[in-house]
Design a protein around this nucleic acid. Structure first.
Length: 289
DNA sequence: CACTTGACCTGTCCGC
DNA sequence: TGCGGACAGGTCAAGT
C-alpha cells in the first residue's frame, strides 16, 4: 500500500498519538504477520514504553524503552490504526467512530496500551509484517543495508540522484525509480506522477536519459512526494492514516488512475499500459519515447 | 553482477 | 447472480 508519503503521514500521526504510552497486552495470530515468539514479546514488548517513531524508506520503526524496536512494513494493504479510550478522552474524538469497528477480520496484531487505547496492525493481503528486534540491530537488517538515500532530505542533491540512477543503465527508468536500492520510498503512484511531471516516458532506458531530464525528475520526485505528505497521502484503495482517515493526494494526481481523462497540460487522453509488470499511466503526447 | 519474472495473499471489479 | 480472470500501494528469491 503505502509509499513514502503515506508511511510518513502515519509516522507523524503516531508521534502525536502513542509516544510515551505503555504497551500492556499484545495479541497476534499468524507468524507471517508477526514472527516473534511469545517469550520475546513478554520480555521486550509487554510493559515497554514507546519512546519514538521513526521512518526509513517505507519502513516504520517504533523505538521502545527496552532498547528493542518494532520494525513494520505495510507492503500493499497494511494499516496502523490507533483507537483511543473513550473513557479517558470522551466522545467526539476524531476516530471514535472506529470503536467497535476495529479489530476486524484483517487485524493481524493488536497492541493494547495501558491507558485503555489500542493500536491495530491490519493487513488484508498479509504481505506486511511486524518484527521486534534490538534497536542496535535495525541498521543490520538486509533491507536497511541495501536501501538508498532518503529523497526528501535537505542534503540530497540532484547530482547524487543522477549518479545513483546511472548505475542501473540497462533497465527502464520506471523500474529504476521503483528500485529501493537506488532511491528510497518511491512506489508505483509517485513514479508515474514524477515521470509525467518531468515529461519522461517510463519505458525509456536509463542510459538514454539526459542530465537535464534527471534534474527535472529529481525535482518532480521531491515536489510530488512533499505535496502528497501535505495532503495526507494517497488513498487509492485501503490506505488510511493513524486515525483511520483517508489521504487526499488522489484529488491532485495528474496521471495515476486517470486513464481516459484529459492530460491537464495538453488535453491528450491519459492511457494505461504495463511497464515491468506494473500498471503505468502516461500522457502519450507529453511523455514520448 | 544486472536484470526480469513469479510468488506471496485477499478482495474487488469486469466481462461473459 | 455466478464464475473466471485480471488486477491491486511492495518486496524477495530464483531464474536468465
Amino acid at each position: 500500500m503505502p509509499e513514502l508519503p503515506e508511511v510518513e503521514t502515519i509516522r507523524r500521526g503516531l508521534q502525536e498519538l502513542i509516544v510515551g504510552k505503555m504497551i500492556e497486552i499484545v495479541s497476534f495470530d499468524t507468524a507471517k504477520s508477526f514472527p516473534n515468539n511469545r517469550s520475546d514479546v513478554n520480555q521486550f514488548l509487554v510493559n515497554a514504553k514507546i519512546k519514538s517513531i521513526r521512518r526509513r524508506a517505507k519502513v516504520l520503526l517504533i523505538d521502545l524503552s527496552t532498547n528493542y524496536t518494532l520494525v513494520i512494513h505495510l507492503k500493499m494493504t497494511g494499516q496502523l490504526v490507533f483507537v483511543n479510550n473513550m473513557a479517558r478522552f470522551g466522545a467526539g474524538h476524531p476516530n471514535d467512530s472506529l470503536i467497535g469497528v476495529l479489530p476486524d477480520k484483517s487485524t493481524r496484531v493488536t497492541f493494547d496500551l495501558a491507558d485503555g487505547s489500542h493500536l491495530y496492525f491490519n493487513d488484508q493481503r498479509k504481505f506486511g509484517w511486524v518484527r521486534l528486534i534490538p534497536t542496535a540491530e535495525v541498521p543490520n537488517i538486509n533491507f536497511m543495508k541495501k536501501v538508498g538515500p532518503e529523497p526528501l532530505e535537505a542534503d540530497f542533491t540532484a547530482s547524487e540522484f543522477t549518479e545513483r540512477f546511472k548505475r542501473r543503465s540497462k533497465t527502464t527508468i520506471k523500474a529504476a525509480l521503483l528500485d529501493q536500492t537506488v532511491v528510497a520510498g518511491i512506489g508505483n503512484i509517485y513514479a508515474d506522477e514524477s515521470l509525467w511531471g518531468a515529461k519522461i516516458n517510463p519505458k525509456r532506458l536509463v542510459n538514454t536519459i539526459t542530465n537535464a531530464e534527471f534534474k527535472r525528475l529529481y525535482k518532480e520526485v521531491r515536489l510530488v512526494m512533499n505535496l502528497s505528505i501535505e495532503k495526507g497521502g494517497s488513498t487509492n484503495r485501503n490506505y488510511v492514516n493513524a486515525e483511520g482517515k483517508k489521504g487526499s493526494y488522489m484529488d491532485f494526481a495528474r496521471v495515476f488512475r486517470r486513464e481516459g481523462l484529459a492530460c491537464t497540460r495538453c488535453g491528450t487522453e491519459i492511457i494505461k499500459l504495463k511497464v515491468t509488470g506494473r500498471g503505468t499511466h502516461i500522457c502519450p503526447n507529453c511523455q514520448r519515447i
